[in-house]
Amino acid sequence: MKAWRILWLALSFLVAILFVWGWQMLADYRIVSPVFLPGPDRAWRSLTLGFTTGDLGMKFLSTVERMFWGWLIASLLGIVLGAAIGTSPRLRTYLAPTLEFLRPLPASATIPVAIAMLGLSDGMVLSVIAFGALWPVLLATIHGFAAVEPRLYEVGRALRLSRPAVIFKIALPSASPDILAGMRLGLTVALILSVVCEMIAGRDGLGNWILLSARSFRAPDLYAGVILLGVLGYGTSVILAAVEGRLLSWRKRAR
């Protein structure tokens, strides 16, 4: 079974390589203008050049940093607020409609408001990312806490656990799959908002770099930046999936 899996993976890698080769052919024979689509060789050269002689590494790191801090603030805030709202049915009836109304609001629409209040600063960028990434975590946490098996709460009452004890010993573990799913969604939002904020506010980072590359028709640099962003998106989701698997391994055993 496992050997089959590896074989399929190898085959699908081969197909991916075939696609890259097709891309190279498209560029080599100038079927698509090289202004729009440089070959993978030129994008790769621009990528390595950016890392060895340029400051692409610094830009990459500043985007990662921005995304990470915004996401961390959002996650902590979301879990704390979500726990408070999720464990109290009264708070839920008062707040849920407001939250439901705010949920579909595009987070990027808050950028102009944040610029008006905080200017084109790093604080503005951080608060926009934190605000945008807060919603998935907050709503998932509320849902997770509200969906805890009621009998578990009854057990907590029978054992005369205090409210913090109930939250940490019963509700939080039981809601953790929902919370982690929300945090994963929040990370995607954080990456998108970091890139958008860098584009609008001109803060140094990958978003700014790809926009400037496009404006000055440096297509290889642009594709290098896009590839890097794809790697970043993929890498963070793989890391989070690994963390999730480790944190939730007790659930599999319990079943």
């Binding site: 399929w8 993976l9 085959l11 699908s12 890698f13 197909v15 991916a16 696609f19 729009f36 995607t188 990456l191 998108i192 890139v195 958008v196 584009m199 978003g207 790809i210 926009l211 590359s213 496009a214 404006r215 642009l222 594709y223 930046g225 896009v226 962003l229 794809g230 998106g233 993929y234 989701s237």
Partner: peptide
């Protein structure tokens, strides 16, 4: 067969294709 190709393109954030 398409798994790797799709998984390589999918994580690109939507705004990253904006300059392209």
């Amino acid at each position: 067969v398409m798994e790797v190709t799709i998984e390589a393109i999918r994580p690109i954030p939507s705004v990253a294709v904006l300059p392209i």
